[in-house]
């Protein structure tokens, strides 16, 4: 064995690509919303998607777990890969894909007829994959993962909708974590929350990225700067710039990016 002093620090290895987006174009009816998006989203990182309202951020994130196609008249072309596998491939079941690529929505949407516990376990129950003997453990792990356990551990049987907005959103995150996804998509998860609840979710995102690959849409550029490793700037359905967050905010390559992050429009 060679002495430690001779070991040189290895160059930072680029983490493998988790999600590949290749020439993705999307339509609602005849209205084209995405015009050829290319992105390589690295594993165990946080990627923020920013851009003015209506530029297609939701459409893009929803095409990653094939929620886009649930809208009537919605259509998509191009390739999206998860670990190199085309998720729009013929033999891919969108239902199975969505168990690996979870999603948290803009407005907290816990199931109104279910208790906190049932909300957490809903994904497993709905997919008939709940191992009853592990239910308690899964509930606790998921709620701890979403930094909600201490607040709700004494009232797991009260309705999920009885929580505050921020707690409901963390419950929705816990619900997603319970099905053990690899990717977590978040579409403006904090836009309905106050600053305190927002910073709790941001802290949570920091912790979660050690396990999950996270893609987050946000209106808030400070938030993008705070939580993400990579940022994509979208403008009228085109990807203007996609690079490391630091770089994008300090030395943007495109003048349109610069205009947007300095608040000249949007």
């Amino acid at each position: 064995m060679r002495p430690a002093v001779f070991q040189s620090t290895p160059p930072p290895r680029p983490s493998p690509v988790k999600l590949g987006v290749d020439q993705v174009r999307a339509w609602f009816g005849s209205h084209q919303v995405l015009h050829g998006i290319d992105m390589q989203i690295p594993e165990q990182s946080v990627t923020a998607i920013i851009g003015p309202s209506g530029c297609g951020k939701s459409t893009l994130i929803r095409s990653l777990n094939r929620m886009h196609e649930l809208t009537e008249g919605a259509r998509l072309e191009g390739r999206i890969t998860l670990d190199g596998v085309d998720v729009y491939g013929k033999d891919v079941d969108p239902v199975l894909l969505r168990r690996r690529v979870g999603m948290v929505f803009q407005k907290p949407n816990p199931f109104p007829s279910m208790s906190i516990r049932d909300n957490v376990l809903a994904g497993l129950r709905l997919t008939r994959s709940l191992d009853r003997s592990r239910a308690a453990e899964i509930t606790e792990t998921a709620l701890r993962g979403a930094a909600l356990w201490d607040e709700v551990k004494d009232r797991l049987d009260t309705p999920g909708v009885s929580l505050s907005g921020g707690q409901q959103q963390r419950l929705c995150i816990a619900r997603s974590l319970a099905v053990a996804p690899e990717v977590l998509l978040m579409d403006e998860p904090c836009s309905a929350l106050d600053p305190v609840a927002t910073s709790r979710i941001e802290d949570l995102i920091h912790t979660l990225k050690t396990t999950y690959t996270i893609v987050i849409v946000t209106h808030n550029m400070q938030q993008a700067a705070r939580v993400s490793d990579y940022t994509a700037f979208l403008l009228t359905g085109e990807l203007v710039e996609f690079s490391e967050t630091n770089r994008l905010f300090t030395s943007p390559r495109d003048t349109r990016t610069e205009d947007y992050i300095t608040g000249k429009f949007g």
Partner: peptide, 24 residues
């Protein structure tokens, strides 16, 4: 949004209807 929440958890159509939409 409730249907979408269920679909996003990997639920298929029938369980979504019976266990989410109908109870709601």
């Amino acid at each position: 949004s409730l249907r979408e929440a269920a679909y996003a958890l990997g639920a298929s159509k029938v369980p979504t209807i019976l266990r989410v939409v109908v109870p709601a």
